[in-house]
Computed example of a mutant assay.
Amino acid sequence: MNIVVLIKQVPGTDNVKLDPKTGVMIRSGRDTIINPLDENALEEAIRIKNSREGVKVTAVSMGPESAVKALKEAVAMGADAGVLISGRAFAGSDTIATAKALAAVIKKLSPVDLVICGERATDGETGQTGAMIANYLDFPVQTYVSAVEAKEDRVMVKRTVEGGFERVEVSYPVLLTVNKDINEPGFPTLKGKLKAKQVDISIWSSEELDLDKSELGLQGSPTRVVKVFSPKLSRDTILYQADGTSKPVDELMKFLNAKEVL
């Protein structure tokens, strides 16, 4: 059984920066982490691996070469291998271009039985990429997954839906997007850290994917951030000082009535 876990290296929550000219997120900073929900996805893949024989877990990411650090961390936590797609051709990709590129990687790693990723990333918060990847792979997709039971030829999942849960059975191959309720991510082990030091993370460029360059990066992104700006908050303050009369209270009542508060 081959499992692919999609992980994304994101800025720390307080360190998200956008290029004001291009609207593209700046990802060159050192303060980066694995997207928290992708840690849940990785933990679930490792749990499945530890419960069965013959399971291989490959962590896949797209980003600058510094994202190798995130993939090595994934190996330290229990993944078997890591693949990074990186290069200028991918810069500025929206969710559509990102999904096409990641789907191409998964096809190259085929046969793949199960793809797991977080339901969304903390930097973009779109929650679109997982379902788009499933579309380009022609895989069924189950979203908001909070429990997984992997069987020989199918998977049973519990999905969080409005007002409760639902249970779904689906055959392989399938893509799952998981939420934070599925598990509690573990920590790298000493054995895992030693393995991560020795493992070679494969780095693939756009030339190694069966995609036209017009489908990648800004060129292949039909959605664009038109403008980035910081909101300006301004308030007009009216100050009435007590002068021993009822005038300040009367003026306040007039103001509240005008605003239809009372």
Rank of each mutant, 00 (worst) to 15 (best):
A134T: 10
N135I: 06
N135Y: 10
N135E: 15
Y136E: 10
Y136R: 04
Y136W: 10
D138E: 15
D138V: 07
D138L: 06
D138T: 09
P140S: 01
P140V: 02
P140D: 01
P140I: 00
T143W: 04
Y144W: 13
Y144E: 08
V145P: 05
S146P: 00
S146E: 14
A147Q: 14
A147T: 05
A147I: 08
V148T: 09
V148Y: 06
E149Y: 08
E149A: 10
A150G: 08
A150D: 13
K151R: 15
K151V: 07
E152K: 13
D153W: 00
D153Q: 09
M156C: 12
M156V: 15
V157H: 02
K158Y: 03
K158V: 15
R159H: 01
R159L: 03
R159K: 06
R159D: 01
V161K: 02
E162C: 05
G164V: 08
G164Q: 09
F165C: 00
F165E: 10
F165D: 07
F165G: 00
E166A: 11
E166T: 10
R167L: 08
R167K: 13
R167V: 13
R167M: 12
R167A: 05
V168G: 01
E169H: 02
S171Y: 05
S171E: 11
Y172S: 01
P173D: 04
V174Y: 04
L176M: 10
L176Q: 11
L176S: 10
L176Y: 13
L176D: 11
T177Y: 10
T177S: 09
N179S: 12
N179Y: 00
K180S: 15
D181T: 15
